[in-house]
Amino acid sequence: MLLGAVTLFFTLTLVFVIIRMVPSDPATVLMMGEATPEQLDRLRELWGLDKSIVEQFFIYLANLVQGNAGDSYQFQRVAGMPGVPVFDLVMNRLPATGYLALVAIIFSMLIALPLGILAALFPDSILDKLVLILASVLASVPAFFSGMLLMLFFSLTLRILPTGGYDSPQSVILPALALSFSFSAVLLRVTRTEMARIMRSEFIQSARAKGLRSWRIVLVHALKNAMIPLLTIIGLRFGDLLAGSVVVETLFRWPGIGGLMIDSIIARDYPVVQLVIPLAALAFIIVNITVDVLFGALDPRLRTGGRS
């Protein structure tokens, strides 16, 4: 929790300072050289960029605390008109990214759990080796490449899934698959290693000595134990998923945060960047806190162990 708060503040400050370290100026970028110096000054004044950086930072923090992240620069073409509030902008896009990440995690689990478990049950078998090779391949292929291949095959050749957008329920399938591949490579390895380790443990031996059915031993006794390291890794690698979603959203024209972030960075849209990146850090922190809470549910030793 404390680490989370420190990290969040660290990110806020870092983003705020770095983006202002660069000589290029948002007003000039926005007007693309078609404005008079007076117009540019008016814009800077409107955005508060004429104040000192420390002053700006405190205004930013004070507004943020009140739930006001400012107005976007780029979604405001006419000088002097108030822009779209960044908060609305981001909140409009947030659900799409959350949805994409969630579906991608589900896909990864669907790929990784069955294969990882099978590989663990038959160590050193052909299947095990194939699974390991698959994991290496999945880990080596960049998301935009697998996304392109998926698009080429399912959209352009078979024509059964859309090439992008957010219109139909099927739209999420390809981007989520592309996003899930490298994530499932990680999960696959962890599942295999952890399941193999757990299957060798003594409590599995005694479960077998009780004559339990194999499916129960694997799916209840072993898997429940394996969920603990699996959750840990999901939490730790969630950041990679967010980064991957930037690429995948761009490729599939998915209306999420990722595309917005890239556009805003390029347009020097300070208020958007100052909200989106700390928000990503916050999401990462929240996911990891959730993982910690779930630990308690999964591992009774932590529940009464006094780790609150």
């Binding site: 990146i277 990503a280 990462f284």
Partner: peptide, 12 residues
């Protein structure tokens, strides 16, 4: 380790 480092890198 508590940061989504790739995102920060994009930004940087």
């Amino acid at each position: 380790l508590a940061l989504p480092s790739m995102l920060i890198i994009f930004f940087f």
